[in-house]
Amino acid sequence: MIQGSTELVAIVGSPVAQVKSPENFNRWFADHQQNVAMLAIDLAQSALDDFVQTLRGWQNLRGCVVTVPYKQLLASRLDSVSERSAALCSVNVIRREIDGRLVGDIVDGEGFLNAARKQGFNPKDKQVLVIGTGGVGSAIAYSLCQAGVSH
């Protein structure tokens, strides 16, 4: 149950009807007795600048997951981004600091790499083929390179 004290996280993109994140996150929050809820926000591109300004003052919003088509568009509107986000000009998470600053990162590649390592994959000196150069594919390629693939 969402209450006045509930902290919020959002997933923002357009469209968002197909995203599974709210269901998955909200189940995890409930299972772990967290007073947090995820909202899906289907945002028109023309409202991006206003949305970023609103995020700065939205005090009970921890941050956002960013999905298509806004990963690249939002990266340039934040106060700071991680080194990998700067290299890829893309974000898939935004954290709102207490002072309203917005900090972005892209964790798709690290998520992929962590899952692959759990299956016994060691990227060091491997040759890899990544098909797709969108936000996720680029992030995976970046993380694989950082982890030591040879080609």
Results as ranks from 00 to 15, higher is better:
P22C: 14
L88T: 09
G13M: 01
Q146N: 03
H32M: 13
A115Y: 00
G63H: 00
A139M: 03
N114G: 06
V52D: 03
I2T: 08
N122W: 01
R101F: 04
N26L: 13
A30H: 01
P22A: 14
Q119Y: 06
R62Y: 10
T133H: 06
A86V: 02
C64P: 01
S21V: 13
L55K: 02
L88N: 09
S85V: 02
S76T: 08
L8G: 04
R56C: 09
E83N: 08
G137H: 07
N26D: 15
V66P: 01
M38F: 07
Q3T: 12
Q45I: 13
D108Q: 05
S76F: 05
I2V: 14
F112T: 07
H32S: 15
V65S: 04
D99R: 05
T54V: 14
V68T: 04
K20M: 15
S21W: 08
P69A: 08
I131H: 09
R117D: 08
S138T: 07
L74H: 01
P123T: 00
L129A: 10
A30I: 09
R77P: 00
N122H: 07
E83S: 08
V107W: 02
D42S: 14
I131S: 07
F112L: 06
R62I: 03
C145T: 02
L61Y: 12
S138Q: 06
M1N: 07
K124T: 05
H32Q: 11
Q3S: 13
E83A: 10
I94V: 11
I131P: 04
D42M: 08
P15I: 11
D50N: 08
K126H: 02
Q119H: 10
V91T: 11
